[in-house]
Design a protein around this nucleic acid. Structure first.
Lengths: 153, 153
DNA sequence: CTAAGCCTTCAGAAATTTCTGAAATTTCGC
DNA sequence: GCGAAATTTCAGAAATTTCTGAAGGCTTAG
């Protein structure tokens, strides 16, 4: 279990995160937050680890903050800002990815309004709407069950 | 409810689909499959509707076929191939988007194997694995409930 | 108050993705 | 079989996304 192996696994995870919709640099940064042996991380450490510019890290951290995957810690008297992965990061990420569900539902409604009943398109769009309506109804319960089974520490 | 409105709604939906991970051209093509007033569509009709090259349509249709969102119909004596949206397109699309869940789970396991217990990273990765394990367990039941409520015609 | 270090911003470079156009291939009616 | 029409393929063009590097602003220690 070498350090090399550890960071290979980290980069591999970054690729999976990128598949899942995150942009490349935020994904790689998130992997650092996961795999670091420290409790918190600074921007400088991320830049060193990934071998990328400070500007890239700034943008990536900003993106991760905005979706609630990481949090800035009350500064412990240091000049550098410290960040860490949030406990609820995974359910947050899952929810963010399902924001699309709401958009799809709305798009379906618009389409239904723009077609006459009897038009094949009207039926297709109705079926689509029903599916996303169903999903939107199920997802909150899903996340609630998760939190019940695994309460934050 | 003009034709213009209808196809504006279609392009709007294509954007939502692109947000959801589909590539631009397959997304636009899928919107045509949804919004067309006919039961089936040919590649030529898609190309005309979208004003794009036959090559682009060929690639897009191939992509939609490979993920199971549309199907080729037994040729009704025409020279052109006819395609249509599949009944189970939406649950298929949802499943495809959740393929990532399995990849994430595997990545987490790799990371756990590459870190020692006691290492903060080990704990984070374990929590991550638990979440995706939970999701992977819940998704099949979710789709089963959908199919029970809305059996294919 | 000053200086040093950290972070942000943004214009431009680089890399990647996406689309087209035309040639090659396949298919189907005749 | 033959020929016309449709489809596939793929190299290169175009567009988009992503990263860097440097300048400027902000914060904190002294």
């Amino acid at each position: 279990m070498s350090e090399t192996e550890r960071w290979q696994a980290a980069e591999q995870l970054a690729l999976a995160l990128a598949e899942g919709g995150l942009q490349r640099m935020p994904a790689r940064a998130l992997a650092v937050f996961l795999f670091t042996g420290d409790e918190t991380v600074t921007m400088g450490e991320i830049a060193d680890r990934l071998g990328v510019s400070a500007g890239s890290v700034s943008g990536a951290v900003k993106a991760l903050l905005s979706v609630g995957l990481i949090e800035r810690l009350p500064a412990p008297g240091s000049r550098r800002e410290h960040y860490r992965l949030r406990d609820d990061a995974w359910s947050t990420l899952f929810s963010a990815q399902n924001t699309v569900v709401g958009v799809m539902l709305k798009a379906a409604d618009t389409g239904i309004a723009a077609t006459a009943s009897g038009d094949p398109a009207h039926e297709r769009l109705t079926r689509m709407r029903d599916f996303y309506r169903f999903l939107l109804g199920e997802l909150p319960g899903l996340l609630r069950r998760w939190e019940e089974q695994h309460p934050p520490r």
